[in-house]
Amino acid sequence: KTVHVDGVEYRFNNPEEADKFVKRLVKEKNGNVEVRGDTYHVE
């Protein structure tokens, strides 16, 4: 899984860790998540 945040790319081998990371980011930023294939885009 890959997570894109503000143009920075984070790669996770463990999908659960990627999910936790995304949830935390969305809370912090009050942002939205767009999923494209295996990539999460957080804005």
Rank of each mutant, 00 (worst) to 15 (best):
N14C: 13
G31R: 06
V42Q: 10
H4T: 13
D38Q: 02
K29G: 12
E28G: 06
E16F: 04
P15V: 09
V22H: 06
G37D: 12
K23G: 10
H4D: 02
D6R: 02
D38Y: 01
N30E: 08
V22G: 06
K23N: 11
V26F: 08
V35R: 05
E17F: 00
K29H: 15
L25F: 03
V26N: 06
E17M: 01
P15Q: 13
V3N: 00
E17N: 00
L25P: 00
H4Y: 15
E28R: 03
L25Q: 03
T2I: 14
V26M: 14
D19N: 03
E28W: 05
E28F: 05
D19V: 04
R11S: 12
R24G: 14
Y10K: 05
D6F: 05
K20L: 11
N14A: 02
K27V: 08
D6G: 05
G31P: 08
V22M: 11
D19I: 11
V5F: 10
G7L: 01
P15M: 09
R24L: 12
D19W: 10
L25C: 12
F12V: 01
K27C: 15
V26Q: 09
D6N: 14
D6V: 00
V3S: 01
K1M: 13
H41I: 15
V3A: 00
K1I: 15
K1T: 15
G31M: 14
E9G: 00
N30W: 08
R24I: 13
K1R: 11
R11I: 13
G31I: 12
V33N: 05
E34M: 13
N32E: 08
K1D: 02
K1H: 13
P15L: 09
P15G: 08
E17L: 01
N13T: 10
N32T: 13
E16L: 02
D38P: 09
N30S: 11
V42Y: 08
R11A: 07
R24P: 02
P15S: 13
Y10I: 11
E17A: 03
D38N: 07
D19Q: 04
V22Q: 03
A18W: 07
D19R: 04
E28K: 05
E34N: 09
E28I: 08
V8P: 04
